[in-house]
Design a protein around this nucleic acid. Structure first.
Lengths: 229, 229
DNA sequence: GTCTATAACCGGATAGAC
DNA sequence: GTCTATCCGGTTATAGAC
């Protein structure tokens, strides 16, 4: 058997790790840290439980790794906040990036939410250091926009919290939103509509110069959200 | 020993039930349904574990009761939405009521969030019936405000989701907010300031007639939120 | 109604052959 | 690196004396 035909050891390791992390995201999102079981994670990953413990010695090691990946993802998305100088494009892009993450990586958002709800036993240090630094810097930028008269005088922290809360709601409460949408997940078009709504409302709310007028849901979509006849 | 001196059986039952429910809220909020243990709940309630199972035969029975109480509480808070005819007082009072609940009953909010994040295994029926009905009615009211020109044309569902997300964030993510507030819980004054900010931003965002101008955080409070020197 | 003891089970983690 | 078998602590729930 030619050597090239089988996966290298490194490849096997990488594949297994990926499978484990993917499965872990699912189980941690659905049951929280304490409620998750390594047996279930191993089963979904398609490996024996003992192998999981070979790759990640303890459940907490695995959990930390998952949380870490999520945190890095968020910090990257946050970069869109900085690419633009002016408030309207900066906030629009940031909100859009966060909404996109809620759509494409809802599990990460849900794990993060569970972790914070449980008192942030694992990430509290990161909150007090990395997240705090990130936040202070952006608060300063927002305050500068206020000083320049580009937006109305606002509570910068309140604004950030509102953006986080609103965008992550579409991941964390997706099940509730679906229940209110006749049991169906939001379609791409519906999601885009909510995204525009969020951006528009917040920009108008802070009195941003050049903010778009609020947009009503188009009739076609409105129908989807309405009760079935 | 005079009979009046001891608690009646009914009183004992009521007291024990209250103690159990209070303890259950704490443990379910911190660990989710699967992660919570009846042993810990009994310990906090100050009774033997067997007694807990006498009052609530299974862990799920207890959990359903806790969730039920929370849901009713929320429906009552929602009533403030209806006491006022016009959008500004109706939404102001509703947002304020929700913020107040986040402040006074954060555990309930956190349990609700955990339940939805986990896929709403227990409350899904209530979402599709009671919550859906409540929502449809309020969407209709909001649409009517739009028709009357009292607010700009908005996505009514998006508006409700934003109110829920933003207000509940102050309960569910209280630990994160505290970490960004130099490790201290928000003071009453700070919380009031955020409440006003949320109300002001949303009312302005929907172009409500008579909405207050956005308010900056007073310097005194701003200092508290700033990095320690 | 209350409490001690315990049954029955599940979960995280490891031993040790391959 | 992989996998079966297993240990052991913790969990839900109940039995049965008081």
């Amino acid at each position: 058997m030619p050597r090239a035909a089988r996966r290298s050891k490194a490849q096997i390791r990488a594949d297994n790790e990926t499978a484990i992390l993917r499965a872990a995201e699912e189980v941690f999102a659905n049951h929280g840290f304490k409620g998750a079981s390594t047996g279930q994670i191993a089963e979904i990953a398609g490996i024996p439980k003992a192998n999981l413990h070979y790759y990640f010695p303890t459940k907490e090691d695995l959990y930390r790794r998952v949380i870490d990946d999520i945190f890095n993802l968020w910090m990257e998305a946050a970069a869109s906040f900085d690419r633009q100088e002016d408030p309207v494009p900066a906030l629009s892009e940031y909100i859009r990036a966060k909404m996109h993450l809620s759509r494409t990586r809802p599990l990460g958002s849900r794990i993060w939410a569970s972790e914070i709800i449980s008192g942030a036993p694992v990430v509290y240090d990161a909150l007090e250091t990395t997240l705090k630094d990130w936040t202070e810097t952006r608060v300063a930028r927002i305050d500068k926009w206020v000083d320049k008269g580009l937006i109305a005088p606002v509570n910068a922290r309140g604004l950030l919290y509102m953006i986080w809360a609103t965008t992550q709601h579409y991941a964390d409460f997706a099940r509730q939103i679906a229940a209110l949408n006749n049991g169906r997940e939001l379609s791409e078009d519906q999601f885009e509509e909510f995204t525009r709504f969020v951006i528009g409302l917040i920009l108008r709310g802070i009195g941003a110069v050049g903010a778009p007028e609020p947009v009503a849901m188009p009739d076609a979509l409105r129908q989807i959200g309405a009760p079935a006849e």
